[in-house]
Computed example of a mutant assay.
Amino acid sequence: MSAGFAECSPPPRRDSGRAQRTRKAPARHHRSAAEQYALAATARPADTYARIVALDLVAEAEMHLKRGSIEQACLTWHKAIDHMGGVRSARTRKAVSRMRSDLRRFRARGLRCVAELDERGRDFLAGA
């Protein structure tokens, strides 16, 4: 190989602090995403768009869970299931199944809000 090969290699990377800023971005992203889903859920008439409002609330709950706010996630999932009353769709059933799966790791901790929500999800799926 020629000496010109070394000249083609990229310059050494410099840490400009950007890596530090981007490490903290996901927590902010989850918070702002949860806020946006909450706004979307309240912006629609719940009686006309019950399924969409419920799915917006599910997405908000998932963002709370990713952020580590299990109690807030449970509260939001309860609201979502409230909106699912009378709505039967593959997407809502899939959302509740995913919720129960996501809660699996918290059930072992004995969190009351998780146990209540899991039971409600199981009842929802049994009636679907």
Rank of each mutant, 00 (worst) to 15 (best):
F5M: 08
E7C: 12
C8V: 12
S9G: 11
P10I: 07
P12F: 13
R13S: 14
R14Y: 13
R14K: 15
D15Y: 11
S16Y: 14
S16Q: 12
R18D: 04
A19R: 13
A19M: 14
R21W: 11
R21T: 11
T22W: 05
A25R: 07
A27E: 13
A27C: 00
A33S: 13
A33L: 08
Q36Y: 12
Y37D: 04
Y37L: 01
A38L: 10
A38G: 08
A40S: 06
A41H: 00
A43F: 02
A43L: 11
R44L: 15
P45V: 09
A46W: 09
A50G: 03
I52G: 08
V53K: 02
V53A: 03
D56F: 08
D56L: 00
L57A: 02
L57M: 07
L57N: 02
E60L: 03
E60A: 15
E62C: 05
M63L: 02
M63D: 11
L65G: 03
L65R: 14
K66F: 03
K66A: 15
R67A: 15
R67W: 09
G68S: 04
I70S: 10
I70G: 01
I70E: 03
I70L: 14
C74W: 01
L75A: 13
T76L: 04
H78N: 11
K79N: 03
A80V: 02
D82Q: 06
M84S: 15
G85N: 06
G86W: 02
V87T: 10
R88S: 14
S89P: 02
S89A: 13
A90I: 05
V96S: 00
S97R: 10
S97Y: 02
R98Q: 13
R98W: 02
R98F: 03
R100L: 10
S101L: 09
S101W: 10
L103Q: 03
L103I: 02
R104P: 04
R104Q: 15
R107E: 07
A108V: 14
A108Y: 09
R109D: 12
R109G: 03
G110Y: 06
L111H: 09
L111C: 01
R112Y: 09
C113A: 14
C113Q: 08
C113F: 00
C113V: 12
V114Y: 04
V114C: 10
A115D: 14
E116D: 14
E116T: 07
L117K: 04
E119G: 14
D123S: 11
F124T: 01
G127N: 12
G127W: 06
A128V: 08
A128W: 06
